[in-house]
């Protein structure tokens, strides 16, 4: 730490170094670690009226976590409803992540290897511009697109492909489309960065040695881009499983996203400790899943940060 600071001072001078250290610690401690720690602390407490906080009843407890696993029933019955929602959320997030990977890989590859200079910059701009629009507005746009009288239904029925409007909202098609769209850039850019640094000669060498189109990707490009793929998938998965706006706006009436449960406990439920416990459960399960998958595919965290 001290060496790091001296090194910073040598490179940037005292004023800049102090600013950097302060800014980084402010960001890390106050904006990330402190709120999370507070939330962790909350999750181990009872939901007490303000008057009793700090009183003798304000002790640490596992009650909130027990509730997640067992529900209100004091018996050993499982809280299948909430656990089911968690699993469904994770499964859907995995699905969305894989879907994003499949549609982004070709885009990133073309962007990185087939287009050059001004054309590539234009393509990147075309990808970014839609994200200048607020996430909630984009979700509403999808709702309009997929609604009973939306563009897709109108077109489909106009062309005579189907007679009665399809309920894309209830079928969750709108939700998955919206989620997949929401974080697409976070998949494209890590992939793009990884593939872009691949020497074109490697691809040509593989072609020359008899590899077909599929083998070039499977044996040369994808292994090389693995850290980028892992990085993109991690980001999309974490953000999708933690998304709130898209499920609120695009989710079917019977389909709850786990974050909506957290939101309900905090908001309408007025039970912050339980909301915190649920949020913690989601965070820990997601991190565990990501680490597990990274281990399976032999990617280290160190590789990802490149």
């Amino acid at each position: 730490m001290r060496d790091l600071f001296y090194d910073l001072v040598r490179r940037n001078g005292m004023a800049v170094s102090i600013y950097l250290m302060l800014a980084v610690s402010l960001w890390v401690f106050i904006l990330i670690i402190l709120p999370q720690l507070t939330m962790l602390d909350y999750s181990f407490r009872f939901n007490l009226p303000p008057a009793k906080i700090g009183g003798p009843e304000d002790v640490y407890t596992l009650e909130q976590y027990r509730y997640f696993f067992q529900g209100s029933g004091a018996s050993d019955g499982l809280n299948t409803l909430d656990i089911g929602i968690l699993f469904k959320t994770l499964l859907a997030a995995v699905f969305v992540t894989i879907f994003d990977l499949i549609i982004c890989y070709p885009v990133a590859f073309v962007l990185a290897k087939s287009s050059t200079g001004a054309k590539a910059r234009l393509l990147v701009l075309a990808l970014i511009v839609p994200y200048w629009i607020n996430e909630i507005l984009r979700a509403f746009a999808f709702r309009i697109l997929f609604g009973a009288t939306g563009v897709i239904n109108e077109t489909g029925m106009g062309l005579g492909l189907w007679d009665t409007p399809i309920d894309f909202i209830r079928q969750d098609v709108a939700l998955y489309a919206g989620l997949a769209y929401a974080y697409i850039l976070l998949m494209i850019f890590p992939l793009y960065n990884a593939i872009e640094s691949l020497d074109r000669n490697q691809i040509e060498a593989a072609r020359d040695m008899g590899a077909n189109w599929w083998q070039v990707h499977a044996k040369v490009v994808i292994p090389y881009a693995k850290p980028g793929i892992a990085s993109g998938m991690t980001m999309v998965f974490m953000l999708t499983s933690g998304a709130l706006a898209a499920p609120q706006i695009l989710g079917g009436p019977s389909n709850l996203w786990f974050t909506q449960l957290v939101y309900q406990w905090f908001n309408s439920g007025g039970n912050w400790p339980r909301g915190s416990a649920y949020a913690m459960v989601l965070l820990i399960v997601c991190i565990a899943l990501v680490l597990l998958v990274m281990r399976l595919f032999k990617v280290s965290i160190g590789e990802i940060k490149q």
Binding site: Q202, E204, A211
Partner: peptide, 20 residues
């Protein structure tokens, strides 16, 4: 006839060995 179907083998200037 594509490069993968020709009876030629090319050695690149930078060799293009696969580092992984």
């Amino acid at each position: 006839v594509g490069p993968n179907k020709r009876p030629t083998a090319l050695i690149f200037q930078n060799l293009a060995l696969f580092p992984l």
